[in-house]
Design a protein around this nucleic acid. Structure first.
Length: 288
DNA sequence: TAACCGTGGGA
DNA sequence: TTCCCAAGGTT
């Protein structure tokens, strides 16, 4: 049996019951899930997504919320600029797309925070359309099963899209399910560290397996540090602002990080990014 | 294009 | 404990 059919059968039997995969999830719900899942693990996204959809079931409902409420609801999912981009995207969808999430790649990619992956994920999972969805999981699965490499090298955007496109059947619904299946296989079986080849549904058709599972020899992507970086400092500062209903004096932020020049630089960048705001009395708060 | 943007869990 | 890394996007 060819690889796509193997993945489809496996996915239909083993797909996780994630809330955004349940019947009745709107394209808006899918869009929200995709924003939250950009670099954040499923387990942390689940509860926030459920709250989010109850509170803001449509783009216009969400667009009407204050940025402070948005950032508090986002909580500690990380990369809070995603929350602001989603907020901006929702405002555009409400104002210019009739409160309906666009269903073509170009309109989606024109929205803030939506790139090649997210646009196609919305098409596939929100609208059941045939679209090559290429994320880190899919790139790894294709690198191994199709190309026989130990892992995916640096992204080759066009080639990656073509690789996945070549696997998708013509039928929209089946192609969309396969896209979900390829991602699921990468997340649960064909994992980055210790792939579970013993239980892999694709094993018989896997080029990496056939080649004797050679070690990955390409360039390793550099691991980002975190401790002591501006990202950590910004996170500390934002955590203070998230935790208070009232604006706080400068001293409250000064207590969050000892290095004054770095702290000042980070506070400034939060203001520039629209993640924080200084009131007339000099105190700081989440943006209104 | 390489660097930057948060956070926390598992090995 | 330290290190890796998790459904990316932007500049």
């Amino acid at each position: 049996m060819p690889l796509p059919a193997l993945v489809l059968d496996w996915y239909r039997a083993h797909a996780r019951d994630l809330p955004w995969r349940r019947p009745g999830t709107t394209p808006w719900g899918v869009l929200v899930s995709e924003f939250m899942l950009q670099q954040t693990p499923v387990a942390r996204v689940e509860p926030i997504w459920v709250e989010w959809m109850t509170r803001w079931p449509t783009p216009s409902a969400f667009a009407a919320a204050s940025r402070a409420d948005v950032l508090r609801a986002w909580g500690k999912l990380g990369y809070p600029r995603r929350a602001l981009r989603l907020h901006e995207a929702a405002a555009t969808i409400a104002a210019s797309h009739g409160d309906t999430v666009p269903s073509d790649v170009d309109a989606l990619e024109a929205l803030p925070g939506i790139g090649s992956y997210t646009a196609r994920a919305v098409l596939a999972f929100g609208y059941g359309r045939r679209a090559p969805v290429v994320d880190t999981n899919v790139r790894r699965v294709v690198a191994r099963a199709v190309h026989g490499a130990g892992d995916a090298g640096p992204a080759r955007t066009r080639a990656d899209l073509a690789d996945v496109d070549a696997l998708l059947p013509a039928d929209d619904a089946t192609a969309a399910t396969l896209s979900a299946g390829l991602m699921e296989l990468g997340a649960l079986v064909c994992t980055a560290r210790a792939p579970r080849c013993g239980t892999c549904p694709v094993r018989a058709e896997c080029a990496w397996q056939a080649a004797g599972r050679p070690a990955y020899d390409g360039p390793r992507r550099p691991v980002q540090g975190f401790t002591g970086t501006d990202r950590q400092v910004r996170g500390r500062l934002l955590d203070v602002l998230r935790g208070t209903a009232e604006p706080v004096p400068r001293a409250a932020l000064d207590a969050a990080w000892p290095d004054a020049p770095q702290r000042d630089r980070c506070l400034h960048s939060l203001l520039v990014d629209g993640l924080a705001e200084q009131h007339d009395d000099g105190r700081y708060a989440l943006p209104r």
